[in-house]
Each structure stands twice: as structure tokens, then as C-alpha cells.
Write a protein that binds this DNA or RNA. Structure first.
Lengths: 209, 209
DNA sequence: GTCTATAGAACGATAGAC
DNA sequence: GTCTATCGTTCTATAGAC
């Protein structure tokens, strides 16, 4: 039972550090120190650093995935042809919502997702399972129904754009903000800005060929 | 003169490897091997791995920056109030165009930019100079003029969304494409899809508060 | 389940010969 | 300007005591 506690502490510490510093930028030593555990604990509980990453990602992704799935079910129960904006909200909303509420945690999850999406390390590509693919394919099909004029390659591009924007909290334009600086959006505001931005983007007429 | 040649080979090799594997995932040894140079060459020509990164990024960013600047100048010479779609094209277009044409090179540049934008490593944050800030601030001001109803925080969010989508070629939704798979967009097609996507997104009415 | 201790490999940097 | 050789550090993983 102290076991399960250490396991959770390791997951928490790893989630935070992977988000802040990336996979390669985080050492097992840093994780175990932050978790108040022994260096050997990662090996004992997870087998390796890569398997710890997989466990972290699964823990973050699963509730998001379930929410995306439930959101689509709810939408389809109400109307046979959801609007694009509704699909965007159902898909992207859960990516901004957080299990543990609070702004730092929200930004952390967003950062972790972006880290996963953009990290070229091979270990980062192994989290994706059939469940994630299924949900994505369901949304893909619904977007295609809502946007029948869009070619499959352009729809695919927009799906990726949707994900990229979702992880926008990781993107920093520069380390200096403008002199007459607008303060950045945070938390709930980010979420609503993203829905507006993405609903318009997804609804755009097809690029003429 | 062999010096300048080795220098260039190192820059080429580093650009490719940083894009493919990230900064931390690329060793100096891998760079010098690909460049056909000696391990000590990086130290001699650039001082350190971090300074080599800075040189690589500068070489990639500078022509993009110049093109963004020239594009805005051209636009403002023609009309005092450019349309949002024109601003998007002038800003995002150069990020898709490539110095050395060809599809692999284009994807490589895009990947490198995304790697830079999303890598949490401290070294990745030091490339940004006053020139980049100036260009960004000019576009920010023009977008604000074209979209007077947008609050500064929302405009700032959209600028970051613009950049995030620009680097979409790095984002992979999953390692498996859908069974009825649309082939992904590449090169010039990516560029045009992005302009459509982003012009609509930037032009969206403000999020109601 | 937790710890110490260490193996074994890879890394960035650099001194010094040529 | 290029090379060899190596220093010192840091890393993940694990054997074995408790």
C-alpha cells in the first residue's frame, strides 16, 4: 500500500517534469527526487523510464478520450447532423479541461500533450492505442459528413491543425512579449478562444484547386 | 576554405538531425559523422553544441523573417488596410516556402521550427532577436487594425495559433492513419490548406465574454 | 518494497600533436 | 584546420543487502 502510494507519487512527479522539460530533458533521478522516492523505484514499479512515460501518458489521455467519446455520443443522441462548431467543442473541449482543476495543472496537461505530439523521440510514439484511433476516426467521419465538400487530404490537414492549436499553450512566440503587451490567455479563456478559432477554421470553405 | 566547407557541412547535418530527433536527441558525434567531419570540429567552428544550434536556427529563420517583412511592406505599399487573408498569407507563407525547394526539405524546415517552438530546453529559447520581435510586432499591429473588435489577449492567442498551425507538419495524430486513409498533404498543398485554415480562423468574430 | 552501490554506456568538451 | 585521445560528467538499469 505504501507501494501504490509511491507509484502515484512517481506518476505525478513524472507528469510534471515531462511536461516542463520534455522526456529526454528529464532524468529518472529528477523524478525520484521530486517524488521523494528512491532511484531504483522507477525500475521496480514501471520497469524502465520509457514504460513510466507510457503510464503517465495513458493516465492523462484516457479521461480525455472518454470525454471526447461521450461528447460525441451526447451530440449524436440530440441531432443526427451536428454542426461543425459543436463537433469542435466536443473534440477540443476535453483537451482543455482538466482532471485536477486549477490553472497550473491545465497548462501542465496542455504542455504534456504538446510535448508528446512534437517530441521526435521514438518512445513518444508508442502510447497510441486502438481506442484513440477509434475515437479519432469517429470524429473524422462526422466532420466529413458535416463538411461534404472537403477533400479527405484537406480534412486530414484540418484535423492535425485542430490538434496543433489545442496544444497552443506550449507554443511561445518569443521569450519577449510585445512592449505594449497583451497578457496571454489562461485556462478557461484559452479554451474558449480556441473553440472560436477552431470552429471558424474547420468551417472554412474548401481550398480551391 | 576547407574551413568554410566543413562549417557548412556541419550546419546542414545539424539542421537535419535537430529537425528529425530534436536538440537533446542529437549528439555531437552524430552530427560530425553525418557531416563527414571530426568530433572536435563542432568545438572549433562553433564553440559548443548550443552555439551550433543557434547558428542553425539563425540560418533558417533569417530568410523567413526577411520574406515576412518584405511581404508586409509590399502589402502596405498597395493598400493602407490589408485584408486579414492577405496578412495571413504574408506572415505564414514564408514559413512554408523553402530556400532549397523540394518536399523533404520543406517538411524538414517545418519540423525544425516546431521542434524549436515546442522544445522545453533552455537552449531553444535563445535564438530570438530584436529583428524577429520587430516583425512580429508589426504584424500584431496590422492584425489589430484589421480586427479592431478583437481584445489584445484574444489577438495574442490567435497569433500563437497561427504559429502552431504553421508547424503542423510536425504534429502526428497517431502512428496509424485511418483505414480508409486520406493521404496527408505535402509541400505546396500544405501551404495552401494552411492559408485557408488560418485566414478563416483569424477572421472569426471575437469570442463573446 | 525500499535501499545502497555500481556497472556500463554515452555524452560534451578540450588539450595537444600535426 | 584537422585529428587522436581522453577527462569528467551524467545517464539508465540492476544486482543484492535489508
Amino acid at each position: 500500500m505504501a507501494s501504490s502510494d509511491t507509484r502515484t507519487q512517481l506518476l505525478d512527479a513524472a507528469e510534471r517534469l515531462f511536461a516542463e522539460r520534455g522526456y529526454r530533458g528529464t532524468s529518472v533521478r529528477a523524478i525520484t527526487e521530486l517524488a521523494g522516492a528512491n532511484l531504483a523505484a522507477v525500475g521496480y514499479h514501471f520497469g524502465s523510464k520509457a514504460q513510466l512515460l507510457a503510464a503517465v501518458v495513458r493516465r492523462v489521455i484516457e479521461p480525455i478520450n472518454a470525454a471526447q467519446c461521450a461528447g460525441l455520443d451526447r451530440l449524436l443522441a440530440r441531432t443526427s447532423q451536428p454542426r461543425v462548431a459543436e463537433l469542435v467543442e466536443a473534440f477540443a473541449g476535453p483537451l482543455f479541461d482538466v482532471i485536477t482543476e486549477g490553472d497550473e495543472s491545465s497548462a501542465q496537461t496542455s504542455q504534456l500533450i504538446m510535448t508528446i505530439l512534437s517530441d521526435p523521440a521514438e518512445e513518444m510514439r508508442s502510447w497510441n492505442g486502438p481506442v484513440e484511433d477509434l475515437v479519432r476516426d469517429r470524429y473524422l467521419a462526422e466532420f466529413q459528413r458535416a463538411l461534404p465538400d472537403l477533400s479527405p487530404p484537406e480534412l486530414w490537414f484540418r484535423m492535425r491543425g485542430l490538434l496543433a492549436v489545442t496544444a497552443v499553450d506550449r507554443v511561445e512566440i518569443s521569450h519577449r512579449r510585445p512592449v505594449t503587451g497583451p497578457s496571454p490567455a489562461a485556462g478557461e479563456e484559452s479554451r474558449r478562444f480556441a473553440i472560436t478559432f477552431l470552429a471558424a477554421a474547420m468551417s472554412a470553405p474548401p481550398t480551391r484547386t
